[in-house]
Design a protein around this nucleic acid. Sequence first.
DNA 1: TAGAAAACGTA
DNA 2: GTACGTTTTCTAG
Length: 968
Amino acid sequence: MTKDDHLFLVDGSAYIFRAFHALPPLTRKSDGLPVGAVAGFCNMLWKLLQDARDTDVGVTPTHFAVIFDYSSKTFRKELYPEYKANRSEPPEDLVPQFGLIREATRAFNLPCIEVDGYEADDIIATYARMATEAGAQTTIISSDKDLMQLVDDHVSMYDPMKDRQIGIAEVVKKFGVKPEKMIDLQALTGDSTDNIPGVPGIGPKTAAQLLDEYGDLDTLLERASEIKQNKRRENLIEFADQARLSRELVTLKTDTPLDIDLDGLRLEPQDGPKLIAFLKAMEFNTLTRRVAEATDTDAGEVEPATVEVEADTKAHGPDLDAGPESGDGAAKDDAPTPAALAEERARAAASAKFDHDAYVCIRDVETLDAWIAKAREAGVVAFDTETDSLDAMQATLAGFSLCAAPGEAAYVPLNHKAGDGDLLGGGLVDGQIPEADALERLKDLLEDPSILVVGQNLKYDWLVMKRHGIEIASLDDTMLLSYVVDAGTGGHGMDALSERWLGHKPIAFKDIAGTGKKALTFDMIDLETATRYAAEDADITLRLWKVLKPQVLARGLMHVYERLERPLVAVLARMEARGISVDRQILSRLSGEFAQKAAAIEDEIHELAGERFNVGSPKQLGEILFGKLGLPGGTKTKTGQWATRASLLEDLAAEGHELPRRIVDWRQVTKLKSTYTDALPGYINPETKRVHTSYALAATSTGRLASSDPNLQNIPIRTAEGRRIRTAFVADKGNKLISADYSQIELRVLAHVADIAQLKQAFADGIDIHAMTASEMFGVPVEGMPAEVRRRAKAINFGIIYGISAFGLANQLGIERSEAGEYIKTYFERFPGIRDYMEATKAFARENGYVETIFGRRAHYPEIRSSNPQVRAFNERAAINAPIQGSAADIIRRAMIRMDDALAEAKLSAQMLLQVHDELIFEAPENEVEETIAVVREVMENAALPAIQMAVPLHVDAAAADNWDEAH
DNA sequence: TAGAAAACGTA
DNA sequence: GTACGTTTTCTAG
């Protein structure tokens, strides 16, 4: 095909429906076969081909094809199970015409193109792209707005029923945006006929205006908070992921696999007798005559063709989807479910081979530029940094790897050191791109919002790049995709994911770096080995992304990923980067005090024991207590050692034994010293002088975060001694720390999900919930209630959240198991709805293998059907707890995601520093404290909205002070 | 020297 | 009774 050629592409499937509805019904005289659409189609084709010969029309096709939908099981269904879900079956009169129209196409001597799994529009887009690349012109015979995105200088459309050309100007006139913006426009408006969601409340007019103002969808969604209209802003924020999904759905594929190339579409001469035979069979007399005249054929000589009439329901037949979960995964070729299709992709990835020799080590800017160009072309790039430390806040960049297509990955070394081994350390290895040059180019790529940067645990790379002045704009994280799909079933580290999904065991870091004291850091590894390792990581990451993203979609979990996971990456990275000030002096003073106290207690212990021994050794201690001294009540742990846990020692102390009391005291002091006052100063970053914890997003089965290095979610608070450690967490000069925590959030969630009238009422009235419980259970008035009664009710309330057992409650309260059982019985009599909820949750978990939070997050419990009663019971309790703990975790996640913008909008400079499950810690200028608290409370208390309207109010307590102890 | 076990800090 | 991470001791290699 050359630039003088002109390709005509007829959207056959769309035409069928339009002709059927627009034209008067027509039946074959002889037998009543409905043929209206066929007649319209034949007339249209004939006219097009005749006009083509009239050179004065100016448009002469040299290539021609008619394109059809093949099946409704397209990749879009895989992306979005609801796609075209509201399509009803085609009218009975239309069904037999699908096959006839294909026959007609062949009778016209025209190629009839259809591809399994793709829509006609994708095939059209692909051919149009190919023709444009050849420099040729394309005319698409359709008026479907879904195709308007293809219109440009080389591609136009033609509406055969209205005899109207559609070019760039017509698209702009009709929709107010240029054709290249049609995708974004459709993503916003959605499409009710195809069941594309879009953003509620946004029609074509609003969409065009928004796109005019913000340029494109990504920018609009990013800056949605600036929009003045309340409802519109909320919807754009709330349904951003839905808009992105819609965009994926409306974007036509230009790489549809095609059996016939452009040259195969060259227009063949009309075969008069062949066409007339078909037309006679259809009994289209007028058209038969015209064709006979034009082709100089004697129609009387031609026998009518034998045309098979079959009910071809392939084009738009009913969907036979069984549901999102597929049993044995054996996809039937006629009706694969979305999950089965996702699994199909997983199967394909599982057999992929890894060729480490194919990886490239990039050592000059030209090559780097070429790879970056390739990434731009793809629009998606897997990215991974290699450094010398697991601490992103201290790590030095050794290099980075890129992968834009499976199997094609490269490593870019930047700071590898020569392993000379002298004490001064080797210099830089020769032949590495200067860091500044490479990062300048990388910045352009990573900060481009149209490039999707895919990583495994991207928060780490985000922080490393941020420290080099680069902020990744659009990201996907394979760890988080896995977490959304599989929370509760194994880990989400790259090695585990690679083995699970790709059947490939990656090169182990310890195999290239060694282990222990003489382990190498990555910058000391030779470039060849480094390339094999680092490029493999990027390769694996991209392949995982290709497998996991469809998994998320197929299971209907995209909203969980988009609303609760992906946005948190940058939020947490910023919190970690800020860190918190910890006063070294205070900790050092406390360490001294604790050391003295521990030493004194240790002397007493040795005195009481009558010998010196290692007090820190439970083994030695057990021997002394239960062996040498023969104290009663000794129990053994599962390894046969004497158990010496605090609660046991407390019991002994209560019987008047002095030694156990002293052990408990000693343990408390040494715990505080070793874990907190001694360890924390070591975490103060020498550069920032602050402590930067690391939050794990995918560590828990319920959706909670986890904090480590150091863990700032378990700083002591229960004892007076412990609280003193909190005084070392301080605000910088001129600032205050603000602590804001949800009051009773898990019990509120329980009241909501289990729908318990008394609980809901109590929270609505702001009543003391434990006292209310006690009053209901024991008939004691709240006024003047004994502390012990309330304490027991409180323990029961917590027990409920934890999936209560008589054994556990008895343990907690120090009562007999039978008595605890009575309490539970009474509780369920007063709150039968709770028991119903617990039973229903267990049943759901047994049935599905997972449970869900109110926002749809899943936690898996594959062992809930274990034949081991202990294992089963444990899984049941966990399954009962997960929706409650997890929903609360989701709520605070939502608050955190909104918080930075809310503070910025209020022009407050407060910074969110820490999260402790139901508490957020901020650092704010002294004079903004009151305003900040108001904004923080507002965001936290409304965090479930607008997705969920809780049946109980959420309440947040907040206070400000110079240190964490006083603020809490 | 790596990993399990026991203990204990938090929500 | 739920969910975590860190420290120390102790054992196996």
